[in-house]
Design a protein around this nucleic acid. Structure first.
Lengths: 341, 341
DNA sequence: CTGAAAGCGCTAACAC
DNA sequence: GTGTTAGCGCTTTCAG
């Protein structure tokens, strides 16, 4: 069937070892033999069997992007896509082989990260989607294979984390709302025990306090990051407290902002004329909604790129495990009204 | 480092061959030895090196999802994500190993599909994103490794195609507009030499003709499937022909519909009160725009699932190469106004 | 600079 | 039922 290294060797009148050297750009080989070999290889349409390659050679240039919960998640967003693009871009530029694996809570319990690396002969991975209740969340800390998590701080001398300063970002977002004259603000909150929720909550609090505002329990609408829950929560809120209780909704994600806006419209209110709304994440949909939603862009593609970069450096031993905080950007669009104070 | 089959053999007091048989559920092995081996394997956290496995065994349970142009495309949509979910779901359910590879026009020229399969030891692939100008478009026809393309008919005895009946679907969409009383319809058209464009155009024509309508050149707005071009085209159209020339815009993709709506709003028109707009594709954004866009849902996730299914059957030899046409669904939402005729 | 030989971890005949 | 043996296609010493 397909040509092997032996076929090429025979065709070029050399040994397999020499072909190997030629194919892998070893220095110790004469220019003319190399050329002859390369020609024979092309002639035979030879491409090396990567399985055999990684079996016999010690080091590998294979990295992975591991997506946890990818199939279970009903969340419609472009996080994974963007992350992938970032990772693949880096891999492309640096001639790495990258592959993607989908895992979940169950498969995490069945197979450790190290085992997975060993099975697929990968040198390390960027890991996305880990929940704090996932097996890997604990076990990863003592892995000997390097990895880079996204937005999840685990610790351990072989695990890095690429994230944004979510506290500062959410603080900034809150401040923006306040700067626009909003004083009565409801918070549309994410899943209660998620770390991302805690961070954003903290950011909101800091900003509120600094401005002498407070956030009573009644102004917090709890959700599990589902749009529908935001809609329902906001509808109920409106019914319960009337239209004058707040002037703005501070949402912990863009999808929540979309749900909020839907409920508001449903109730006959106008955004941003009657209520202002802000989101968080910077998913691309926010540009196409009406109004376009003011949000914080996490720049997820760059996160993917940087995560792959850091992983690569860890594998090469040129950088040690670390937390890498990437810049975010407040995207001011059309969902906030400036209030006269 | 990690445990090998030899380690397990030693621990269980058997030979490597026996371990192999135990791990792969061979029938000819005594229950107790199997159990002992499984225990030892668990004890040692053994997981088989997949490279070695696929090197030594002939057949593989590895399939791939090949995404062409994934990195180059600036298109923001959830096609790839949904496709992936579909493929991975099937693979999961059938205990296949699936991996993803990103290629482009350049890498296609460098390495044939068969070579790629050989390199990664994959039995076949679902291929997405092929352009009619891509090298694979021609070369795939004579491949001996089975594959399934999405929406691209190539032919050859080892290549299947999973698609929708885009002609019928677009015809249906057009008919819907007409049924709602629209007679003066502008067409916001995709890239001129793309096959998808041709199909949709054909569908539109059939429906138009059947209803005694025609589509003069001036009512066609050309784009390359870019939202911005739709906006610009529609704005210009309005300027040129005034507000009475048409009552509806028939768009060849959802992104074009979004661009169209933007331009319409920009010009002070209301959708659907002043103009009706329909899209095509069924990307999730269409549910979050204002108004929600009436469109044709291609059900891309199912397409991924079915493509993987068909691929699997081809590999197993239980189904031969074929065209598989999946149902589409007209999603009626809020972007079309019923006109009194 | 190049060839020969060993071996990566596993599977698959073939014996017994 | 189980052990033994011979590779799968490649890399990597070690000689020369």
């Amino acid at each position: 069937m397909a040509a092997t290294i032996q076929d090429v060797a025979r065709a070029a009148g050399v040994s397999a070892g020499t072909v190997s050297r030629a194919m892998n750009n070893y220095p110790d080989i004469s220019a003319k033999t190399r050329e002859r070999i390369l020609e024979a290889a092309k002639e035979l349409q030879y491409s090396p069997n990567l399985m055999a390659k990684s079996l016999s050679s010690k080091h590998s240039r294979n990295i992975a992007l591991i997506l946890s919960g990818f199939l279970e998640d009903v969340m419609f967003n472009d996080f994974e896509t963007m992350l992938m693009k970032g990772c693949y871009q880096f891999a492309n530029e640096h001639d790495l082989d990258i592959s993607m694996y989908v895992i979940n809570t169950k498969t995490q319990a069945e197979k450790s990260y190290e085992q997975l690396c060993y099975e697929y002969n990968i040198a390390g991975a960027v890991i996305f989607g880990l929940k704090s209740t996932d097996p890997y969340f604990k076990s990863l800390a003592k892995t000997r294979k390097p990895c880079v998590t996204i937005d999840v701080e685990i610790g351990g001398k072989n695990v890095s984390n690429v994230t944004n300063d979510h506290v500062a970002a959410f603080e900034e977002l809150t401040q923006y709302l306040i700067d626009q004259g909003h004083r009565k603000i409801a918070l549309v909150c994410g899943r209660e025990n998620a770390t991302v929720t805690a961070h954003r909550m903290e950011g909101a609090m800091i900003s509120m306090k600094r401005n002498g505002l407070d956030l009573p329990k009644e102004l917090i609408i709890y959700t599990n990051f589902l749009k529908e829950e935001a809609s329902a929560g906001v509808a109920e809120f409106l019914k319960k407290y009337g239209r004058e209780r707040v002037t703005a909704f501070l949402c912990m994600s863009d999808m929540l902002a979309i749900g909020t806006i839907e409920a508001l419209k449903e109730a006959g209110a106008k955004v941003p004329d009657d209520y202002s709304v802000v989101g968080y994440d910077g998913i691309y949909v926010t540009e196409y909604t009406d109004p376009k939603i003011t949000t914080v862009d996490q720049n997820i593609k760059d996160k993917g790129y940087e995560a792959a970069h850091l992983l690569y450096d860890m594998i090469e031993g040129t950088r040690s495990a670390q937390n890498c905080i990437l810049p975010h950007r407040l995207e001011i669009r059309d969902s906030v009204k400036k209030l006269d104070v």
